[in-house]
C-alpha cells in the first residue's frame, strides 16, 4: 500500500518539477536581453557605453517648436510627456538611439517621431566623450500611461547583453500644461 503512495508521490513530484521548469526557465530572449541599470530622477547612471541623468518630467497638451525654419504646432489624443535629461558618451563616441516611456502597465512608447526637427532632441546627434548633451526626450502617451512610468535609455530599441538604463519617473505627475513652446524651455 505504502509502495503505491510512494510511486504516486514520485509521479506528482516529477510533474510539478517539470511544470515548474517549463514555466520558470528564463527564455533565450531574457537571458540575452538588456542588462538593467535602475535609478531615479537626478541620479547620474553610467552604463557600459554612456551615462545619463534624467532631470525633470513635463507634461503638455500641445507643443510648439520651430523645425527646418517652419513654425510647427502638434496636438495629441493623449498627452505629450517631455523628459529633460543629460547624456554623455563614456568612454568612446556613440549613438544612443533609443528612448522608451514604459508605462506602469508595461506598455512601451518609443520617442515620438512627430516632433522630428525640434530643437535639442536627444538621440539624434552622436555623443562625444567629455561633451555632455542636455536636451529632451519627447513621448506621446495616453493619459492613463503617465503615472508611475519608467524611462528606458539604451543604444538600441532591444539591447542584447547591453546596458538599459531604467529611470523611475514620478508616481504622481503634475497636471499637463495647455501648451509648451520648446523654444522657450529652460533646460538648466
Amino acid at each position: 500500500m505504502s509502495g503505491v503512495f510512494a510511486k504516486l508521490g514520485a509521479l506528482v513530484l516529477a510533474v510539478m518539477l517539470l511544470v515548474g521548469m517549463q514555466r520558470y526557465t528564463p527564455s533565450y530572449a531574457e537571458i540575452t536581453g538588456p542588462i538593467p541599470l535602475k535609478g531615479n530622477l537626478g541620479e547620474t547612471l553610467t552604463g557600459r557605453i554612456f551615462s545619463v541623468r534624467g532631470d525633470k518630467v513635463l507634461l503638455a497638451e500641445k507643443l510648439r517648436f520651430k523645425a527646418y525654419g517652419r513654425e510647427v504646432e502638434r496636438d495629441t489624443g493623449g498627452v505629450f510627456a517631455l523628459v529633460i535629461a543629460r547624456l554623455e558618451a563614456q568612454p568612446a563616441s556613440v549613438n544612443v538611439g533609443s528612448a522608451i516611456w514604459r508605462s506602469a502597465q508595461g506598455v512601451r512608447f518609443v520617442a515620438s517621431p512627430r516632433v522630428q526637427g525640434a530643437p535639442r532632441l536627444l538621440g539624434t546627434d552622436r555623443l562625444e566623450p567629455g561633451l555632455p548633451q542636455r536636451g529632451l526626450f519627447i513621448f506621446e502617451v495616453p493619459r492613463e500611461a503617465v503615472a508611475g512610468a519608467t524611462l528606458l535609455v539604451a543604444s538600441s530599441r532591444w539591447p542584447r547583453l547591453d546596458t538599459q538604463v531604467e529611470i523611475a519617473l514620478p508616481a504622481k505627475p503634475d497636471i499637463p500644461a495647455p501648451l509648451i513652446d520648446l523654444g522657450e524651455l529652460a533646460y538648466e
Partner: peptide, 13 residues
C-alpha cells in the same frame, strides 16, 4: 492630425 507622413502609431492612441 499633422497632415504629415505617418511614421509610427503609439499604443492606445
Amino acid at each position: 492630425r499633422d497632415k504629415a507622413m505617418l511614421s509610427a502609431l503609439q499604443p492606445g492612441l
